[in-house]
Structure formats: C-alpha cells, structure tokens
Design a protein around this nucleic acid. Structure first.
Length: 961
RNA sequence: GCGAGGUUAGCUCAGUGGUAGAGCACUUGCUUCACACGCAAGGGGUCGCAGGUUCGAAACCUGCACCUCGCACCA
C-alpha cells in the first residue's frame, strides 16, 4: 500500500481481489478436508432464474449468505456455498419466444416445433443466460463456482426423473382430470401457489330466469360472470331457504344463448348446502366447467360439465352466435347487453371482488377442467414436526407458524405444465388407437404388467420400466410406462410408445436442490459413499425470502426427508422484502428498482453491502434508500483513512510485530481494548442470532464513534511525527511504539470483524498494513478470509492488560469533560480551530500523559493545572465532572445574555431531574422494595445533579449583570 | 372471516421493568498536519389511544384505533 490515495477507490481493489480469490481457490470446498477440527459448513444458494438479472433482493439475500460463509471460514470451517440457477420454465420459454419473434425468426413456437425450439432455448441459455452469476461476483459472493449447477444439467434432470418415477410408483403421483388454475396467456396449468388474489372492480349483474314449470314465476340470480351463463347446468338454492324450497326439483330456462329451443335451455333447480342464502339473491348459477366450487356441486349432483371457453380464454360456438369467438371480457359485456335487450337484466351494480391472477402473466386465471399430473406430498409428518418441534429453526420464528399452517392444509400439487422448456414428464403411453397396441399388449407377459413390478425391457442391467394397463374414461385402454432410464425410453419409443407432452413445474426440480446438486443418485449405497453428501448434507443455513416459503422451503424439507432421510438444512433465515422509500414493492413498471450494478459503480460493492445490511433488521421489510449506500461508502472511506493514518506512523521497521507492553498502557489504550472486547462479543452474538443490522451498527459505533472519534485523536498525544523520530527521546519513542502496537492490535481485529461485511476493502487493508505477515498460510497469510475470527479477552488477558472498571471510567470521564470544555468554547464563540488556554483543576491527581491527552482533545493552546487554593476570576466560564473542573479564561468574549439564558435552561433541566429522583427516593415503598443497586444508582444520580446544579448556580451568579 | 407483524425524533429504525437511543435530515461553527465521503457543538420525542399490573411501564396484561402482509373466500 504505497502512495495511498486520500479516498478509497473501490473499483480496482474489487476486481483485483475477486480475481485473486478465485484463482487461489479460496472459495473452493473440499470434502476431504472436513474433519473434527475443521467442521463442514454449507449453504445452497436459492437458485435465481437463469433469465434473471441482479436485483436488490438478490443483493440482500446473497450478501447475507456471503457473510455467513466468510464468517464460517474465519471460524475455521470447511465451507461449501453452492451456486447455480434454475431453468424457470415459463419465464425462459417466454423470453426466448419473444426474442425469436422480435427477430422475425418465428411467429409462434409451433413454427419451429418442439425440438428446434428447445435448441434455440439452449442456445439462448449458453449465450445470454446466467448473467446473474457474473453479477453475483460483483458483490463479492464467495460461492464455489466449480460446483455451479443448473436445474437442467443432465445429472440434475436425471434426479428429477428419478424422483418423479419413484413417487409415481409409490402412488403419490397420479394423473387426473381436475379443476386447475389455467393461465390463458401462458396456456398452461399453474399450481395454487402461483395464483395471487387481487381485488377487481367489476359489476354484480342481477338477471332473471323463468321457472319452466311455473310460467310467470321468475328467479333472480346474481353473478359477476354473465358470460358463463351458457355453461350453466343448474341453478342451486340452499335446502333450508324457505323462499325457494318449493322450487327444488323444478327447472328454469337458462338465459343464454337465447337462440336455443326451450327444451335445450332447461336446467334443474337443485338444493345444495354450499349456497349462502344471505348472499346475493340466494340463488346460485352453477357452472361446473368454469368455477371450482361449482364443479364440486356438479359432482355432488351429477351435473353435466359444459365447457364454453377455449384455452386462450375465448368463447366457443356453444356460447351462441353472439358470443362465439369473443374474448372472455368482451363476452362479459356482450352477454350483459343481450340480457338487457331481452329484459332479463334487472340491474348491474358496481362490485369489488377478489379474482385469482396468474402471478407471472398477471392476468386473471381461468378455473379449467383439464388432465394434469398431481402429487400428494410425501414425508409431510417429518417435515411438519421438524419445524414444529424447533429442531429446525426459522428466523424470525414467526414463519414457523405460517409454515405449520400451510402444512396443515396441504392440497395436492399440480406439477404438470403445458410448456416445452423443462423436465419432460417421464411417462410414455401406448394408446389403443395405435397399430402397435395389440401386439405390444400381448407380447408383454402377464408378470410384466402391474402396479408393483418393474422389468428391464432394454436388457441393460439396472434399467427398468414399469408398465401398467389402464383405461382412460373417454379414450379407452392404453399402456402407461414409467422409467427414468434413457435406454428403456428408447426401447419404449421404438415400440410405439409416446412420451407425455407436458413438462414439470420448475419447483418440482428446485425442491431437490440441496441434494441433487451434490450428486445424489437415489442409490443408497452410492449416496452413502458420496463425499459431498457425506460432508455437506444436511446443509447448515438456508437464506431466502418468505415469499417462497411454500413454493420452495416447505417442499425442500419434504423432499429432504423423502430422499435423504434427513432435513435439508438446520436453520432457515427469512430476509425481509426490499421496498422503495415509500414502502412500495420494487417493480419494473414503477421504475423504482435501482440497478445494483449502478450502485456498485457509484459507491463500491462494500458500500452497497454495508448499506443494505445496515438497513435490514431481522424480520422487517426493508425500505431501501440510496442514502444507506452512501453511508456505506462514507464508512469505507473512514475505515480507509483510519488505516492510512496508521500507515503514516513510521517509527522504524517491523513495528507491526511489536508486542503490547501493559506497563506502558494509558487509560485510552485500556478503554479502547475494553470497547473492542465489547464489540467482538456483540458482533459475534449478533451474527449467531442472524441480527445482521445489529452487527453493522455495533461495528459502526465501535469504529467510528469510539475508535476514530476518541482513540485516534487521543493517540496523537503519544505518537511521534516522522520528522521527529530521529530526535525523540527513547522513552517517548517507546511510548509511541506501544501506541502503534495498540493501534495494530485494534485494526487487525477490526478488519477481521469487518471482513464478512466488507470483504474487498478489508482484504486490501489487511495486506496493505502487513497484518498477514507471519500468519500460517491457511490462517490469514493468504487471505483475511481465513484469518481467525476475533475472540473476546480471557480473564487472564484482561488482568494482564489491566482492563478494569477504573481504566474505563477514567477515560470515559475524561472524554465527557472534553465535551464540556468544547461546549464552553462554543459558548464563548471561540471557533473550534482556534487554540485558547484552558485551566484545569483536577479532583485527584492525573499523570502528565493524561493531561496532555486532555489538552489535545480540547485543542487547547495550553492546559494549566491549578491547585485547590486557586480561584478563577469572577465570571470565568467553567464546567466540571468527577475528573475535575475546567476553566476557560476567555477575555470578555462571553455574551452574558446568551450565557445566562443557556445556564438558566440547564438549571431548569437539573431541577427537573432532581425533582424526579427526589420524588422517587421520597416514596417509602420505592426505598423499601427496590433492589439495592438501583437505589444506590438513584442516590448517585441525585448527588451528581445536585453538584451540577450548584456549579451552574455559581456560574450564573458570577455573570456580569 | 382466520392468522401474523407493526404504530418510539421530520424520515428509516434500535430499545425484554430502573436517567428515551442511532443513522440520515436540520441549525451553528470549522479546509485543526487520516478522512469535507470530514471535524466539533446543538435543536428536536405527553414512545398510537384507554384502562390495568408494579415502588417504577416505551417495554408486561386487557380492550380499542389505524397501517402492512399472509391464508381462506360469497356467486
């Protein structure tokens, strides 16, 4: 660190060290190094979308992981932080399709066909995907990049297939025609978790239908979706509703389409408990094809299901000529108009209701009957218990309740998606309409069918297929084969089997992330010998956002038990959600989401990390303000300059290694060592409890307010300027050297405490100050990342350095007196840079060195010590505390009026405080019941305020009139 | 409707029964030989409201108000 610039310049430092770290393998994990003395620590990254770019959310999340990983390294652990990305089915497919369309290459992905399109996706992934991985490096993420994984890696894909086939064989995965959440834009089914409810302004339409058996009798029905009337197959009332009981069993004439003959419009009036007779008119139109609850009613009453919507949300011909072809929303308006035209519409009132939206496409989902794959969650009991019992800990704890709540109401998971990009369902079918069907069916021996047997069709060892003969409710018999073997799949296809067209939900692959990334095979013997799984599973911590607690966290826990027989992680830390200054979520459309890379180039990566961590308290959302990053930059600069100051102390060679001589320590030295000890304890505790913002504020307080503001300033009294070194007396030099030894001790500890938060600047300064010298290669010589984490002093050390109450108090009262003295200067209008003489009358005796510190901190021209007999001239501004009295013999500079005002205000305050304490002490039950320490403390406080009051009264009395 | 979290200085937030705190912002004075990305000194709060427990409550209990977020949902 020669020619240190005045201000810290992050850019070169960051690039230099990141490269050096990766080149020297600092981030690389090796299971072979794990031992009792070097325990394993592991985290798997929440894989960002391969299409993603770095957001502040990622910065928050990954900075926390990096802090944990770096701290673990300093604790001497073997650390694996495993990075990677997920393939993000819908998002990636959409991005690529859009790109190709824009380039004019295609109009629709069908133009290319599945295989060609997937080639394009892979090409895109190779060229453009994973930008975010490069961006993570910019924030200093210390991931083991050698182990980067992608959910579509061949080995990973095989894990997904294997798990699917296994769960299928266990009967937990089944295919069925159910009501699912259908996204008319993405044209795929979604899981319940991918649907968000949003309030929508619309209308409640009241329309009437005639009771067929009682001409002239009408029922009024309230609905928000009149366009689904053509799909109504019943009208339902509550069986207990006296208004309508007599009508049950009769029929109404469906209002739409109007063209149909009377008999085609007859639908029954049924009685069902589901109907709330307080709501609307108490009459419910039942549309089994387009509403989940109605579908259930339909099942209970054996109603037909009539589907009048196309997959992309348009009306079919069955909706009638007026509606056919219309988009569902246009059709809503149109159907209301038709009802009105026929005099059936009674009213349309503005109405707000909750509508399910596709989270990704941001359009209302359509409940739709379709054939999908579902999963009954495995290992739910273990997964629920491990959190409920507190064996796996959630931070903040309250998320455990949210988790438990969800685990208590699990619905089967719709895992199939009508996409091309993803893990294709490993199921092959041979339907009876295929020419091969009969031959294959008869060629397979009886024993080769069934729900329990697997056989090898390819003839390759260990490669098996399970084939079952099933009957589809509408399409008749077929053969269904399940295998995770490529060889078996090839054999199946050559026999005429066709693979299921659907792919799996992306989360169906990410729930395997903690072990599939470590080379899991599903073969117990092989997995037992897998050094990665052995060393690093279960992982230690998971850091993620609470928004994916169900999507990901809960499912990983279940998969962990099902396939590893153990939980995937010990602790889960849920970050807050980053919002803007006004508390709004970050979003592209609001444009309120700053680009972290811009922030890094403006302020530096360490500054960004520090700013984000400082404003991220446990369990709270984070209102992001760029000022926080600015604060981080300022802090880095402060750290830089404090170290630069040390660098300027040239007292000869090798002073770094100088031992601290306890005999030469001043109260300032002891005080800062005590403060350091305190900071070490507090930061260590804060990190152990995942209180990252707490840790940063402790560091900030210690370094800025204690070390820089007081200790460095005080140390200047003992230090010797380079030009004076040659002429300094030996004992002066010895004191200066001891001071530098203390500084080095503090800085070397401070840099280590800061390293997890500020990796770049601390590494630079660590080497710049030479603190790596003489450390073992793996414990700080190569990188501060593996220097030992600071430890609080032992009792022996405290005694050795003399770190006791007295030393602490002398320094504290000295600094307090300095503040009082500086205030005096302000009162008499002496600019802070102007040096004036002070007089000091100590209560006890103080060594000369202490007096010099006092003088220096007061920026006094001189500090004359006065004896008890000395009396100040009348009206001399003065202040006092336990250490003594200081006088500022200012010559007529005092503004008597202003001073009197100030003093009177102070006196008033002192009286209020005295009254408060006196009242307490005057209360008999207080004196009786309060602990002795508190009583003593109150008595002390009273005495202090009284002394203060006396001094103030003297001062005010001595003011010139 | 059920559940969780919140309400402390202008702003963002600490503060688990004993003298109300920090950072930013604000005022004033300073290019004091590490740092103006800085130094120094200040101003600013009936701790959401109402009860209760206690010698003592911002903190514990009860109720209420308002805000945020989950989950469920009535067409």
């Amino acid at each position: 660190m020669t020619e240190i610039p005045k201000a810290y310049e992050p850019k070169t430092v960051e690039d230099k060290w990141y490269q050096q770290w990766t080149e020297s393998g600092c981030f690389t994990a090796d299971p072979a190094r794990v031992s009792a003395s070097r325990p394993a620590y592991s985290i798997v990254i929440p894989p960002p979308n391969v299409t993603g770019v770095l957001t502040l959310g990622h910065v928050l999340n990954n900075t926390i992981q990096d802090i944990l990983a770096r701290k673990a390294r300093m604790d001497g652990k073997e650390v694996l932080w495993l990075p990677g990305t997920d393939h993000a089915g819908i998002a990636t497919q959409t991005v690529v399709e859009r790109t190709l369309k824009k380039a004019g290459e295609i109009r629709h992905r069908d133009d290319l066909g599945r295989e060609k399109f997937l080639e394009k996706v892979w090409q895109w992934k190779t060229e453009k995907g994973g930008i975010i991985i490069q961006q993570l490096k910019k924030i200093g993420a210390s991931c083991d990049w050698d182990r980067e994984r992608f959910t579509m890696d061949p080995a990973y894909s095989h894990c997904v297939q294997r798990v699917f086939v296994d769960l299928y064989k266990k009967g937990l995965i089944y295919r069925g025609k159910r009501m699912v959440n259908w996204c008319p834009v993405s044209l795929t089914a979604l899981s319940d978790e991918e649907v968000v409810m949003k309030e929508q302004k619309g209308f409640m339409y009241h329309f009437r239908v005639e009771v067929a058996e009682l001409p002239g009798t009408f029922l009024t029905i309230a609905t928000t979706r009149p366009e689904t009337i053509p799909a109504d197959t019943a009208v339902a009332v509550n069986p207990k509703d006296p208004r309508y009981q007599h009508l049950v069993g009769k029929h109404v004439l469906r209002a739409l389409p109007v063209e149909l003959p009377r008999e085609a419009r007859l639908i029954p009036i049924i009685a069902d408990e589901h109907v709330d007779f307080e709501f609307g008119t108490g009459v419910l139109k039942v549309t089994p094809a387009h509403d989940k609850a109605d579908f259930e009613i339909g099942l209970r009453h054996g109603l037909p299901v009539m589907d009048i919507l196309t997959p992309d949300g348009r009306m079919t011909a069955e909706a009638g000529p007026d509606l056919a072809g219309l988009d569902r929303f246009a059709a809503r308006k149109k159907s209301a108009e038709i009802l009105e035209a026929h005099g059936a519409l009674e009213k349309a009132e503005p109405y707000v209701n909750n509508v399910g939206f596709s989270e990704r496409a941001d359009v209302p989902i359509e409940p739709r009957l379709s054939e999908q794959w579902f999963l009954k969650y495995p290992s739910t009991d273990e997964a629920r218990t491990v959190v409920g019992s507190g064996r796996m800990r959630f931070f903040p704890e309250r998320w455990a309740k949210v988790y438990d709540n969800w685990m208590g109401g699990l619905q089967d998971w719709c895992i199939s998606r009508q996409l091309w990009w993803g893990h294709r369902v490993p199921i092959w079918r041979l339907t009876s309409d295929r020419p091969e069907f009969a031959a294959v069916e008869s060629s397979l021996s009886q024993g080769q069918f069934g729900a329990h047997g697997d056989f090898s069709w390819s003839g390759q060892a260990g490669q098996t297929t399970r084939i079952q003969r099933k009957v589809h409710p509408t399409d008749g018999p077929f053969l269904e084969a399940a295998t995770d073997s490529a060889a078996e799949a090839a054999r199946l296809e050559s026999a005429g089997f066709v693979q299921d067209a659907d792919v799996l939900d992306t989360w169906f692959s990410s729930w395997l992330w903690p072990f599939a990334t470590m080379g899991w095979t599903g073969n117990p013997e092989e997995d037992r010998q897998n050094p990665w799984l052995k060393a690093f599973y279960p992982t230690t911590d998971l850091v993620t956002g609470p928004d994916i607690i169900f999507f990901w966290v809960a499912r990983m826990i279940m998969a962990g038990y099902e396939y590893m027989g153990a939980e995937p992680f010990r602790n889960v830390y849920f970050t807050g959600i980053i919002r803007d200054k006004q508390g709004r979520k970050m979003s592209k459309s609001l444009g309120n989401s700053p680009d972290p890379l811009d922030l890094i180039s403006t302020y530096g990566a360490d500054a960004l990390r520090f700013g984000v961590m400082r404003s991220a308290p446990l369990g709270q959302d984070i209102l992001f303000d760029e000022q926080a990053v600015e604060l981080g930059r300022n802090f880095c600069n402060k750290l830089w300059n404090a170290c630069r100051f040390r660098q300027m102390q040239n007292l000869g060679p090798d002073t770094v290694e100088a031992e601290i001589d306890p005999a030469l320590l001043s109260s300032d030295d002891r005080w800062i060592l005590i403060r350091l000890d305190q900071a070490i304890r507090e930061v260590t505790d804060a990190l152990a409890g995942y209180n990252f913002s707490e840790a940063t504020s402790v560091l900030y307080r210690f370094f800025w307010s204690e070390y820089c503001d007081w200790f460095i300033e005080a140390s200047k009294a003992a230090l010797v300027r380079p030009e004076d070194v040659a002429t300094a007396a030996p004992e002066v030099l010895r004191l200066a050297q001891n001071k530098v030894a203390v500084i080095d001790f503090i800085l070397s500890n401070t840099l280590r405490l800061f390293h997890p938060f500020l990796p770049f600047i601390t590494e630079e300064l660590w080497h710049g100050l030479g603190y790596q010298n003489d450390l073992p290669e793996d414990r700080g010589a190569l990188t501060i990342m593996r220097a030992t984490w600071p430890k609080p002093f032992s009792d022996e050390e405290r005694e050795y350095f003399g770190l006791d109450e007295t030393a602490d108090r002398v320094a504290t009262t000295k600094y307090a007196l300095v503040t009082l003295g500086r205030t005096l200067k302000v009162q008499v209008n002496v600019p802070s840079n102007k040096r004036v003489p002070f007089i000091f009358r100590p209560s006890g005796t103080l060594p000369a060195a202490e007096l010099e510190v006092l003088r220096l901190l007061l920026n006094a021209e001189s500090l004359t010590v006065a004896g008890p007999e000395w009396a100040a001239a009348k009206g001399t501004p003065t202040a006092c505390n336990e250490l003594g009295e200081i006088f500022l013999p200012a010559t007529g500079l005092v503004d008597a009026v202003a001073e009197r005002t100030r003093l009177n205000k102070e006196i008033e305050k002192a009286r209020v405080e005295i009254k408060k304490v006196e009242d307490k002490l005057g209360n008999p039950s207080f004196v009786q019941k309060v602990p002795p320490a508190v009583l003593a403390e109150h008595q002390n406080r009273l005495a202090e305020w009284q002394a203060k009051l006396r001094q103030l009264e003297t001062s005010v009395a001595e003011l010139p009139a």
